[in-house]
Design a protein around this nucleic acid. Structure first.
Length: 596
RNA sequence: GGGCGUGUAGCAUAGCUGGAUAAUGCGUUGGCCUCCUAAGCCGAAGAUCCCGGGUUCAAAUCCUGGUACGUCCGCCA
């Protein structure tokens, strides 16, 4: 259902003919034919300024001449020339009948594109399992999951993957703390800091992070800190050489934390298909084989202490060009394992997408260049800028964090307060269900709707905004569409039967609400395609907002049931919009509830 | 110091493969519920698109030089 492309395909030959009549035969104009800015200007516009020179005529005159020369077509409603622009307006009747006759209007996976057969592996989040999810980490998870959902909506076969960092210092510290510190030790060390929120008692990510935090303090302050550092160092070293006992200890330490984090993510509708442990590439020998292979490269180098690197300067990398892949003691580095991981991932998909914070840009560049060196493809990466607090950067260490669990609680509570005022007659249980859906969706949408590279400052009042350009706004439009269906049913109207009717008397005069909605429906899947192919979910968020806004105007202008009589045309358009809203909401992880 | 990113009404953003009067939400402000949910709709006010230079018939958009902020420049992960 990509109607704007259909329109363009219809209009292009007409324009080509008209241009030929006027005396233009080259092809440059094709890229200039673009969607118009304003609805009253038309749907497609062609600026005529570039033709002025070669024709020796003023642009407005050329536009006039083109408008004259344009052949008529059922898809083209109106052609006019305004100030050097040739404006072409689609016939609303044509638009409506194309939309309603589209196979997807009647088929089941409505609003969904055809399966493409492409297998995409999207790796996102992959946060270190050492503490609860905070909103600083949330952008990765929310953007990544939206990408997963949008790719599925588009028809791709997607696997959502979490790379578990199960070795190295962070987990090492956690494991050490859990082994050596008692509950009392921890509380004594953290005295004066914010206590564990009683609400999260029993949730391992919240409980165990206190051990981690206490260890961080002790590593700085305690008298035997050197001995501690040595012990942690030994464990980390063992893990990096694939010592299975140590890795098992580590897993026992982090797994409950990871499970707690995943519980939080699940509340936001974020789930993963597969988890891959970093240590796998050490224990299965991939990493050592890889390091051997690097030795044969002409850009390979060795430092004084035996550490090894690739000199990527020879491949055009600027700045510090030595990319170390092996320490002096022979162990591998994070990036080395990451390369082994990528080679493994490439065996399982057609396209690879990683979601990474902007701090990983250099790292990703190095990994990408090394993959090229290995004859591998380079993954596509979506980078995002960090979420910070008005007071500055979020840091678990400093304690200025907003935990996702707390944010979601707050979101539910505030949403419940709103629902309580707006719907005083609802049962408590009903209010809670609506508030949960609205709250978590609002938090997600608030993050999705801005472009990832933009810096983001977390503000409660924005995260919990329930009107205007928010998730509840979209949800509300969808609910209205649902209530139309309910209304039809209560009037004894068979909606399925109405939907399968062929409307042969599409009105020639339509309200602005109707035309606006048809236009929004027409571009919907074009925007989806762009959002997916360019890795920019916010484009689709904006489209969904636009669709909801247009639906609200349509709702004002077009009654569907009057005195028990149904207007079949209006109902069909409403249903198309409703299902597009529903699938679109699912594509962004907004709860498509039918009542609120 | 070098690389990358960002700078658009009071606030938060969209627009960045050049095209018309710079779009949206919040906030401010005026209207709309005998009618499918007013979490809505219709209107008003509000902009030196960070600054300078350049390319072009045309620049928020491209080039260049500044500037402010973020981020990276471990044999950490």
């Amino acid at each position: 259902m990509r109607h704007m492309q259909i329109l363009k395909a219809v209009v292009e030959p007409l324009i080509e003919q008209a241009l030929a009549q006027v005396g233009i035969t080259n092809d440059h104009w094709r890229s200039m034919l673009a969607p118009s800015r304003e609805l009253d200007q038309g749907d497609l516009s062609l600026p005529c300024f570039p033709f002025a020179k070669q024709l020796g005529k003023a642009p407005p005159a050329i536009a006039e001449a083109l408008a004259e020369a344009m052949a008529t077509h059922e898809a083209v409603g109106e052609v006019n020339a305004v100030g050097g622009y040739l404006n072409i307006k689609a016939s609303p009747t044509w638009l409506a009948s194309t939309i309603l006759q589209s196979p997807q209007t009647h088929g089941h996976p409505f609003g969904q594109c055809q399966p493409t057969g492409r297998r995409i592996l999207i790796e996102h989040t992959s946060a270190n399992p050492n503490g609860p999810f905070h909103v600083g980490r949330a952008r990765n998870a929310i953007l990544g999951d939206s990408l997963v959902r949008l790719h599925r909506l588009y028809g791709n076969e997607v696997r959502a993957e979490y790379y578990v960092d199960d070795m190295g210092k962070q987990v090492g510290v956690l494991a050490w703390a859990l082994k050596h510190l008692s509950h009392e030790d921890v509380e004594a060390t953290l005295e004066g800091r914010e206590a564990l929120n009683p609400k999260w008692k029993g949730k391992a990510d919240h409980e165990r992070v206190r051990w981690y935090q206490a260890a961080q303090v002790i590593r700085q302050e305690r008298a035997d800190k050197e001995a501690i550092e040595q012990e942690i160092g030994r464990m980390v070293h063992a893990s990096e050489h694939g010592d299975q006992d140590v890795l098992d200890d580590f897993q026992a330490a982090y797994q409950p934390v990871l499970d707690g984090m995943l519980t939080t993510l699940a509340r936001l509708g974020i789930n993963f298909d597969t988890f891959t442990k970093e240590s796998m590439f050490v224990t299965n020998g991939d990493v050592s084989r890889l390091m051997e292979q690097f030795r044969g490269f002409d850009i390979h180098g060795t430092a004084d202490n035996g550490a090894e690197f690739l000199d990527l300067g020879a491949r055009g990398l600027k700045g510090k060009t030595e990319f170390f892949f092996r320490r002096g003691d022979g162990s591998s580095l994070y990036a080395t394992r990451d390369i082994a991981y990528h080679m493994w991932k490439w065996q399982q998909c057609d396209d690879l997408i990683n979601v990474l914070g902007e701090d990983h840009k250099l790292q990703a560049k190095q990994v990408g260049m090394t993959l090229t060196e290995l004859g591998q493809k380079v993954p596509e990466v979506m980078f995002y800028s960090f979420i910070k607090l008005p007071e500055g950067k979020m840091s678990t260490r400093k304690g200025n964090v907003v935990f996702m669990d707390d944010l979601l609680e707050e979101a539910s509570e505030q949403a419940a307060a709103v629902v309580g005022v707006l719907r005083p007659d609802y049962e408590e249980e009903e209010v809670k269900a609506i508030a949960d859906a609205a709250g978590t969706s609002a938090v997600r949408f608030n993050i999705i709707k801005v472009s990832p590279e933009k810096g983001f400052t977390f503000r409660w009042e924005e995260a919990l905004a329930f009107e205007g350009g928010s998730a509840p706004f979209v949800m509300y439009s969808h609910v209205r569409a649902c209530s139309i269906v309910r209304r039809c049913e209560s009037e004894g109207i068979d909606v399925d039967a109405e939907m399968s009717k062929v409307v042969n008397s599409i009105p020639t005069e339509m309200s602005s609400g109707m035309v606006g909605l048809l236009r929004s429906i027409a571009v919907h899947n074009d925007v989806l395609a762009k959002a997916v192919n360019d890795c920019r979910p916010h484009l689709f968020a904006n489209q969904l907002l636009n669709l909801a806004t247009c639906f609200n105007s349509f709702y004002r202008d077009c009654m569907i049931v009057i005195d028990g009589e149904v207007n079949t045309f209006n109902l069909q358009v409403s249903e198309v919009a409703r299902r597009l809203m529903r699938t679109g909401m699912e594509g962004l992880g907004i709860a498509p509830i039918e009542h609120m």
